[in-house]
Design a protein around this nucleic acid. Structure first.
Lengths: 155, 155
DNA sequence: GCTTGACTTAGAGCGCGCTCGAACCCGTAG
DNA sequence: CTACGGGTTCGAGCGCGCTCTAAGTCAAGC
C-alpha cells in the first residue's frame, strides 16, 4: 500500500503520515524499488490507536513515549500499561469535568427559558468552582519541567 | 479590584486578562484615577462562564460571538440560547466519543494483563471506527471556508 | 518522447491561545 | 528623594500540531 492509499484508509493526509514518521510516531516505512513508502495493512491498527490517544487529548510527546516503548519490545509492556492507566485516569477526569460543565450549560440554557421570561441572567450559575486543570481544557503544565530543562530564552 | 487581584480570584494571569480584553472577550474595564483597570466583582462570574466554554472546547472565536451578542443586550437572547444549545450538543458528542475511547483504552490495558501473559497484542481492539470529528479531538474545520469541505489539496 | 500524476525531501508557514519583554507611569513607605 | 511594587501599552515570541511549497524523481499511458 502506498502513502496515498494509506491516507485514504486512515483518514490522515500523506503530509501528516510523513510528519508522523519523521517525528517517530510511525515506524520508518519500508520502501519499494522506487524508494516510495510501501505499507503493510497492519499499520492501520496502530494509526487508529494513535487516533484514540489523540482524540482523548494525549499530547504527541506522550504518544511518542508510548511508541518508543512499543518499539523496544515486550519487555516494556508494564511501562506501557502504566502509561495507559495514567492516561485513562486523566481522560476519566476530563469526562467528569465536561459533564459538570454540561450541567452549567443546561442551567444557562434554562435561564434563557421559553423564548423570553427572565430578563435578568447575566451569568453565574455555578455547579462547583472550576479546578484549574479543567479550566485549561486538558492537562496543562507550566510549560517547562522545573528541575533543569529550561528553554533558556536567549536574549 | 485591580487587575492583579482579579487575576488571583479568577485564576487567569494579568497578561491573559488584558489579552481577553483586547480581543473583546472581556468588556473594556473601567479605569481609576490613575488609568488603571478597576474591576467590579461581577466580572468574575463572566470569567468563570468563559472558563466553562473553554473547558468544553469552544474556540475563542465562538466565545467572542457569544460575548458580542451579550453586549448587544437582551434582544439577542434567543441567538445566545441557540449558540449554547449547539455547543451543548457538540460537548455531548465529545463526551460520547471519549467514553468510547475509554472502552478501547480499557481493552488495551486488559491486553497487558496481570504482569505478563499475552505476548501478542500489537494494537487493534476496536470498539467502533473513529469518526473524523473525534479523531481530530474537538470539532476541527477545514481551516478556511470552502463549501466543499475537504482540505482541498491545492496544487 | 512527452505528459500526467503520485510520490520524494527539506524546510518554511500557519492558526490557535496565550505569554512575555521592554519601556514607561503611579502611589506609597522609608 | 528614592526605591519598589504594582500598573500601563505595544508588539514580538512560543509551543503545539500540523500544512503546505518547491523542486525533484519515477512509471505508466498516449
Amino acid at each position: 500500500m502506498k502513502i496515498g492509499e494509506l491516507a485514504k484508509q486512515s483518514g490522515l493526509t500523506p503530509h501528516t503520515i510523513r510528519y508522523y514518521e519523521r517525528i517517530g510516531l510511525l515506524p520508518r516505512a519500508a520502501r519499494d524499488h522506487a524508494r516510495q513508502r510501501d505499507y503493510d495493512a497492519t499499520i492501520l491498527s496502530w494509526i487508529e490507536f494513535l487516533g484514540r490517544l489523540k482524540a482523548t487529548g494525549m499530547p504527541i510527546r506522550d504518544m511518542l513515549r508510548y511508541a518508543e516503548l512499543r518499539a523496544r519490545g515486550v519487555a516494556t509492556e508494564p511501562k506501557r500499561r502504566r502509561l495507559l492507566e495514567r492516561h485513562r485516569e486523566a481522560v476519566r477526569a476530563h469526562v467528569t469535568a465536561l459533564q459538570d460543565c454540561l450541567l452549567v450549560l443546561d442551567g444557562k440554557i434554562a435561564g434563557y427559558a421559553g423564548s423570553s421570561e427572565r430578563t435578568n441572567d447575566d451569568d453565574a450559575i455555578s455547579a462547583r468552582p472550576i479546578h484549574d486543570d479543567e479550566r485549561h481544557a486538558i492537562r496543562r503544565q507550566p510549560r517547562s519541567g522545573s528541575p533543569g530543562a529550561r528553554p533558556a530564552r536567549a536574549r
